[in-house]
Design a protein around this nucleic acid. Structure first.
Length: 889
RNA sequence: GCCCGGAUGGCGAAAUUGGCAGACGCAGUGGACUUAAAAUCCAUCACCUUUACAGGAGUGGGGGUUCAAGUCCCCCUCCGGGCACCA
C-alpha cells in the first residue's frame, strides 16, 4: 500500500509536458482577451500604462513552421511577456503575408485554388503557433490576401498615383522565366532570381507600373543615421543599396569631322590625343549645338578635378550614339556585338567582377570642354548602360579601371594630380608609373590649366561652377537605387486598380469602387502573360470618366507591397473606412522592437521605410520611421548547414514539441546560442533543457506546500541565517542579471544559465528546506520568483507551477520580480592572489575589509607564503574587490 | 577588391569596464537506486607531463602595450555574410 502510494507520488511529480501543455493551450485559446492590448484611447488616463509595440515579421503561410520561425517568435514572445510583467501596455500581433507565387505553383501542381490552399495553410500554422504558446492577440490578425486588407493596397496605390509616385513606363525590366513574371531590382541577386538561385534573370522591354522610391532616396539614406538601434549591418546594406554618389555631368561635343581627314578607323586607332580643331575653345557651349542629342556625349564623373587627364571617352555598348556609329560602320558593329555579348555573359556569371576588359575605338572623337582637346571615343564592356549616363571619361592616371584599360590598348596616361608630399612634380617616369593609378583626393592638381596647384576638392567646386556657368555641365547626384517595379504578371496578388480607356487613356479606379476583387476560378498557367487577362468578366469594364468600354489592368502587385505597411493595420485591423485610424497609429508607433531575419535587410525593410515616408507626406501618420529598434536573429542550422529539404537536415517543430514539449523547444532555441548568432540545432541539447525544466518542476512541486503554508506572509531578513540568506542572495543576483539581460543584450542563453544555477543551488539546500531550516516565507519567495523569472521563457510550465503555488490569475499580469540589493549583498568575497601574474591562491575576505586587512590576510596565506618566501617583494597591486598581484624578484 | 561579422575544450557556449579563461549545458567516464530498464541522484573529466600530489602550455597565427590581454594596438591566416567594373 505504502509503496503504491509512493509510486503514485513519483508519477505525479514527473514532468510530462504532453500532459501539461495542451490543456493550457486550450485554456488560452478560449480567452481571446488574454493577450489583448488596452485601447489607445486610454492613454493619458490615470493609471494608464506606457505602450510597447513588439513585432515579429509576419510569415508567408507555407503550411509549416520551421525552426527559424520558432526561434524568431520565441525571442519576441519572451520580450512581450517580460514587458507585460513590467507593466507595459503591450501590442503583440501576428498575421499572414498571404499573397505570392507558391500558392499558384501549388494550384498548378495539386489543382487546389490558391485561396483554399493559402487559408488551409494559415489555419495549420496558426494551430502550431498556439501550440507553441505564443502570446499573440489574434483579434488583430491580418491576412493580406483577403479583400478587407488588399483593398487598402489599392487605396494606397491610388494615392500614390495622384501624387505622381505611381507611374507607368516602358523599360528594360528583370524577367524570371521560372516565375514567369517581372522582378524588382531588389529581387535580383547576382543576376539570378531571389526564389530561383539557378535561374538567370532576363532583360525584357515591358510597360510596367513603378513606385517612385527614388524620390525618397536622400530621405531614406539620411534617415539611416537616426536609426541608431538598428544593426550596423542592415544600415550599411541599405546605404550601399541606395548608393548615392555626387559628382558632375559634363557634355563632350562629338566631332564627327575628324575621320574624314585621316583614313580608316583601324588606322586612326585612337592612341593619341589630337590637338583641338579650329573653332573649338575651352568652355564652349556644346549643349546649344545639339539637336538630336547625338552631337554630344554626357559623362558622369565624381572626379571632375581629373578632367584634364581624360584621354578618351568610354561608352556603354548599348549607348544610343554607339548604335548610331554602328549604322555607318559594319566592322564596328560586329565588335560592339561582341562587347554586348560579354556584358550579358558577365551579368549571368557568378562573379562578374572577374570579366576581362575589352573595348573598341569608334573612329570618332569628342572635345573636352575644359581644354578643347580631341579625345578618341571608345566603346567598352565595363561601362554600364543603366548607371550615370552610360558614358565615362577615362582618366587612366587616376582611376584603376581606366588605367588597366589604357595599358591594354596603349592609351595615353596623363598625370594631373600629385600627392601633396611630392613637392617636385618632375619625378622620373618609372617612379610615377609605380604609384599609378593615383586615386587619393588629398592632393594637388598639375597639368590642369587655370586649376593647377588647387586641392582636389577645391578644384571640383570651381570646375563644376565653371561648367554650370558655361552651360556644358552641372552638379549631379546619382543613385544605385532604381524605382520599384511593382507589376507582376501573376494571378495571386492584389489587382492594380487601374483602367485603360480608348478615349481617356489610363484611368484610376474611383475609391468608391474599391476593392477591385481578385476573381476566383481563374485558369492559372504560366504561359502567355497575366492569368487575369484570360478572364473577360474581369478585364472588360466601363470607363468611370466617359462610360465607354475600358479594360482593367491585369497585372497584380508585388507581394512586398503587402508587407510594406501591414504593421500599421494591426493597430486598427477591422477598420472598413480607412487603412487605419491616424490616432491609433500615433499612439502605437513607432514599433518599439521589430524582430526578424536579416534576409529582409534590403527588400522589406527598405520598402516599408519608403511606404512610411509616403504615408507621412499624405498626413496619415506622424512618424518618419516604422521601427525604433530592429533586431535580426541568426539562422537555425543543423550539422553546419542551413536546414533544407534537399539536404535532408530539417528538424520539424511539431516533432520537437511532441517529444520534449513546446517549453523545452522554445527554451532550447534561446539557450543554445545568443539570439543574434547562428544556432546549430542539437537534439541532445533540447533533451538537456527538458531535463532542466523537469528539475524545476520537481523542485517546485516538492516544496509547494511549504511555500503555500507561508500564506503570503513576509519574512524578516534580520532574523534569517544560512542557508536562507545565501539562497536569497543567489535569487536576487539572478533577478538582477536577468532583468539586465532583458533590457540590454538579450543574451537569453546566459539568462537561462543563471536560472539553472539558481535551481542547482536551491536543490543543494533541499535537505535544509525539508527540515524546516528555511522559513516557509523564504521558500515561497524563492519558488514564486523562480517561476516568475522563467515565465517569459517557458510559458506552460510556469503557468502550471504558478497555479500549484496557490496563485490565481495569469502570471503575465503579475509584476516582474524586484531586485533587492540588500539581500543580494555579499558578506565575504573571494579574491584571487597572483604572484608575478600567476595565480597562486584564492583568499576569502570580508566585503568591507580595508586594504591593510586584505594585505594581512593574503600575506599570511600559506600558499602565498610558499610562493614568495626568500624573494624580494617589489610591488603589491591591489584591485579592490577584484584581485591582488604580488610582484617579487 | 571594398565593407561588416566571427575564430575560445570532443560539442553548443560564458567571461557586461583589461583582473581566477572555460560559468551553464551537451557528450564522455565511474558509481548509487532498480530483478532490469527508463527516470533520477552523486562523483569525475575537460590539453600535455604525472598513479596521485603538483607543474606546464593554452582563447586562429606572429609581434607590441601593461603588474595583468580572449578583451587594447600593429601585421597575417582562415570561415561566414553583404557589396562589387557604380565612373
Amino acid at each position: 500500500m505504502a509503496s503504491e502510494n509512493s509510486t503514485e507520488t513519483k508519477r505525479e511529480q514527473r514532468y510530462t509536458p504532453a500532459e501539461i501543455e495542451p490543456g493550457w493551450a486550450e485554456t488560452w485559446a478560449a480567452q481571446p482577451d488574454l493577450y489583448a492590448a488596452e485601447p489607445s484611447h486610454l492613454e493619458g488616463q490615470p493609471n494608464s500604462k506606457p505602450k510597447y509595440y513588439v513585432l515579429e515579421m509576419l510569415p508567408y503561410p507555407s503550411g509549416q513552421l520551421h525552426m527559424g520561425h520558432v526561434r524568431n517568435y520565441a525571442i519576441g514572445d519572451a520580450l512581450a511577456r517580460y514587458m507585460w510583467m513590467q507593466g507595459y501596455n503591450v501590442l503583440h500581433p501576428m498575421g499572414w503575408d498571404a499573397f505570392g507565387l507558391p500558392a499558384e505553383n501549388a494550384a498548378i501542381k495539386n489543382n487546389t485554388p490558391p485561396r483554399e490552399w493559402t487559408l488551409a495553410n494559415i489555419a495549420a500554422m496558426k494551430r502550431q503557433m498556439q501550440r507553441l504558446g505564443l502570446s499573440y492577440d489574434w483579434q488583430t490578425e491580418i491576412t493580406t490576401c483577403l479583400p478587407d486588407y488588399y483593398r487598402w493596397n489599392q487605396w494606397f496605390f491610388l494615392r500614390m498615383y495622384e501624387q505622381g509616385l505611381a507611374y507607368r513606363k516602358k523599360s528594360k525590366v528583370n524577367w524570371c522565366p521560372q516565375c514567369a513574371t517581372v522582378l524588382a531590382n531588389e529581387q535580383v541577386i547576382n543576376g539570378r532570381c531571389w526564389r530561383h538561385e539557378d535561374t538567370i534573370v532576363e532583360q525584357r522591354d515591358l510597360e510596367q507600373w513603378f513606385l517612385r522610391i527614388t524620390k525618397y532616396a536622400d530621405a531614406l539614406l539620411d534617415g539611416l543615421d537616426k536609426l541608431e538601434d538598428w544593426p550596423e549591418k542592415v544600415r550599411t546594406m541599405q546605404a550601399n543599396w541606395i548608393g548615392r554618389s555626387s559628382g558632375a555631368t559634363i557634355a563632350f561635343a562629338v566631332d564627327r569631322l575628324a575621320h574624314e581627314e585621316e583614313g580608316t578607323r583601324e588606322e586612326r586607332h585612337g592612341k593619341v590625343v589630337l590637338p583641338a580643331p579650329e573653332g573649338w575653345s575651352s568652355g564652349q557651349n556644346v549643349a546649344g549645338q545639339s539637336e538630336s542629342g547625338l552631337n554630344e556625349i554626357k559623362v558622369f564623373t565624381t572626379r571632375i578635378d581629373t578632367i584634364y587627364g581624360a584621354t578618351s571617352l568610354q561608352l556603354a555598348p548599348a549607348h544610343p550614339l554607339v548604335t548610331e556609329f554602328m549604322k555607318e560602320d559594319n566592322g564596328l558593329g560586329r565588335e560592339v556585338d561582341k562587347l554586348l555579348d560579354e556584358q550579358k555573359k558577365a551579368r549571368e556569371s557568378e562573379d562578374f567582377g572577374a570579366i576581362e576588359k575589352h573595348g573598341v575605338f569608334t573612329g570618332h572623337y569628342a572635345v573636352n570642354p575644359f581644354n578643347g582637346e580631341r579625345v578618341p571615343i571608345w566603346v567598352a564592356n565595363y561601362v554600364l548602360t543603366d548607371y550615370g549616363t552610360g558614358a565615362v571619361m577615362s582618366v587612366p592616371a587616376h582611376d584603376e579601371r581606366d588605367f588597366e584599360f589604357a595599358k591594354k590598348y596603349g592609351l595615353e596616361v596623363r598625370v594631373v594630380v600629385l600627392p601633396r608630399r611630392i613637392g617636385e612634380p618632375k619625378e622620373t617616369g618609372e617612379q610615377e608609373e609605380a604609384v599609378l593609378p593615383y586615386i587619393e583626393e588629398d592632393s594637388l592638381l598639375i597639368n590642369s590649366g587655370d586649376y593647377n596647384t588647387l586641392g582636389c576638392e577645391e578644384a571640383q567646386h570651381q570646375m563644376i561652377a565653371f561648367a554650370e556657368k558655361s552651360g556644358f555641365g552641372e552638379s549631379t547626384t546619382t543613385y544605385r537605387l532604381k524605382d520599384w517595379g511593382v507589376s507582376r504578371q501573376r494571378y495571386w496578388g492584389t489587382p492594380i486598380p487601374m483602367l485603360y480607356c480608348e478615349k481617356d487613356g489610363i484611368v484610376p479606379v474611383p475609391d468608391d469602387q474599391l476593392p477591385v476583387l481578385l476573381p476566383d476560378n481563374v485558369d492559372i498557367t504560366q504561359q502567355n502573360g497575366s492569368p487575369l487577362g484570360r478572364v473577360p468578366a474581369f478585364v472588360n469594364t466601363s470607363c468611370p470618366k466617359c462610360g465607354g468600354p475600358a479594360r482593367r489592368e491585369t497585372d497584380t502587385m508585388d507581394t512586398f507591397v503587402d508587407s510594406s505597411w501591414y504593421f500599421y493595420r494591426y493597430t486598427d485591423s477591422k477598420n472598413s473606412s480607412a487603412p487605419f485610424d491616424t490616432n491609433k497609429v500615433a499612439y502605437w508607433f513607432p514599433i518599439d522592437q521589430y524582430i526578424g531575419g536579416v534576409e529582409h535587410a534590403i527588400l522589406h525593410l527598405i520598402y516599408s521605410r519608403f511606404w512610411t515616408r509616403v504615408m507621412k507626406d499624405l498626413k496619415l501618420i506622424t512618424n518618419d520611421e516604422p521601427a525604433q529598434r530592429l533586431f535580426t536573429q541568426g539562422m537555425v542550422i543543423k550539422d553546419g548547414a542551413k536546414m533544407s529539404k534537399s539536404k535532408g537536415n530539417v528538424v520539424s517543430p511539431d516533432d520537437m514539441i511532441a517529444r520534449y514539449g513546446a517549453d523545452a523547444t522554445r527554451a532550447y532555441s534561446l539557450f543554445a546560442a545568443p539570439p543574434d548568432r547562428d544556432l546549430d540545432w542539437q537534439e541532445d541539447g533540447v533533451a538537456g533543457v527538458s531535463r532542466f525544466l523537469g528539475k524545476v518542476y520537481r523542485l517546485v512541486m516538492k516544496h509547494a506546500d511549504a511555500a503555500k503554508s507561508a500564506d503570503g506572509a513576509a519574512f524578516d531578513p534580520a532574523t534569517l541565517k544560512a542557508p536562507a540568506t545565501e539562497l536569497l542572495r543567489k535569487l536576487h543576483k539572478t533577478i538582477d542579471k536577468i532583468t539586465h539581460d532583458f533590457s540590454g543584450r538579450w543574451h537569453f542563453n546566459t539568462s537561462i544559465a543563471a536560472i539553472m544555477e539558481l535551481v542547482n543551488e536551491i536543490n543543494a539546500a533541499d535537505a535544509a528546506m525539508a527540515d524546516g531550516k528555511v522559513p516557509p516565507a523564504v521558500i515561497a519567495s524563492l519558488l514564486d520568483n523562480l517561476v516568475l523569472l522563467l515565465a517569459p521563457l517557458a510559458p506552460y510550465i510556469t503557468a502550471e507551477l504558478w497555479q500549484e503555488l496557490g496563485h490565481t490569475g495569469s502570471i503575465l499580469r503579475h509584476p516582474w520580480p524586484v531586485y533587492n540589493a540588500e539581500l543580494a549583498k555579499e558578506d565575504e568575497i573571494e579574491i584571487p592572489v597572483q604572484v608575478n601574474g600567476k595565480l597562486k591562491a584564492v583568499v576569502t575576505v570580508p566585503t568591507d575589509a580595508t586594504r591593510e586587512q586584505i594585505e594581512h590576510i593574503v600575506l599570511s596565506n600559506e600558499k602565498v607564503q610558499k610562493a614568495i618566501t626568500g624573494k624580494e617583494m617589489i610591488k603589491l597591486i591591489v584591485v579592490p574587490g577584484k584581485l591582488l598581484n604580488i610582484l617579487v624578484k
